[in-house]
Amino acid sequence: MSETHATIRSGAPVFPPGRYGRRREPGRRRPVLAGLLALALAAVLGLVTVRLYQQYGDPEYDATVITYTGITDTQVLVDFRVTVPPGGSAVCVLRARDRAGAEVAREQVTVTARPGERHVTTQHRLATSGRAFIGEVLRCRPPT
């Protein structure tokens, strides 16, 4: 025999008493705690963003490889152009890789612009431990 309760809306499921355990009461919401956690997360993400931008994203120090030539078993000549603040200098990391992608040379080069100039075009010879396939500029940053 089934029970019909007068207080239950039509269409709502009726569970036999004791069969499925006690129904939970709706939990109390804590909007202040959720807001504080969201604010703390936003602050941490903001700090990480600023730190990564300072480390990798300075647009004043931009390098472009023009060409790499003079490839032998012991060297590669890398021509590159660096954008720096007017009259400033930069420390650039150059590397050469072989055909398989292994690094065969890495060197730091300091370039300095003439007073009032923002661009420095230079050529640097990288001494390699094997035959290079490509010469590249990994990054440029302010001198420390």
Rank of each mutant, 00 (worst) to 15 (best):
T67E: 13
Y68S: 13
Y68T: 07
Y68A: 13
Y68M: 10
Y68R: 02
G70E: 15
G70D: 13
G70W: 08
I71Y: 00
T72V: 01
T72G: 01
T72P: 00
D73A: 11
D73T: 11
D73C: 00
T74G: 01
V76Y: 00
V78F: 13
V78K: 02
F80S: 11
F80Y: 14
R81V: 08
V84A: 10
V84I: 09
P86K: 05
G87Y: 06
S89G: 15
A90M: 06
A90D: 04
A90C: 05
V91I: 06
C92E: 04
C92I: 10
C92A: 04
V93W: 11
V93I: 14
L94Q: 04
L94V: 09
R95W: 04
R95V: 07
A96Q: 06
R97W: 04
D98K: 01
R99N: 02
A100G: 11
A100V: 09
G101E: 05
G101A: 03
G101S: 05
A102W: 09
E103I: 13
E103K: 06
A105W: 04
A105Q: 08
R106A: 11
E107N: 08
Q108D: 15
V109A: 10
T110C: 06
T110K: 12
V111Q: 11
T112R: 14
T112P: 02
A113Y: 09
R114G: 14
R114Q: 15
R114H: 10
P115K: 11
P115S: 10
E117M: 09
E117A: 15
R118V: 12
H119R: 12
V120D: 11
T121S: 15
T122A: 12
Q123Y: 04
Q123H: 05
H124V: 14
H124P: 06
R125V: 14
R125W: 07
A127Q: 09
A127T: 13
T128K: 04
T128E: 07
S129R: 13
G130H: 12
G130A: 15
R131A: 14
R131K: 15
A132P: 14
F133R: 04
I134H: 05
G135P: 06
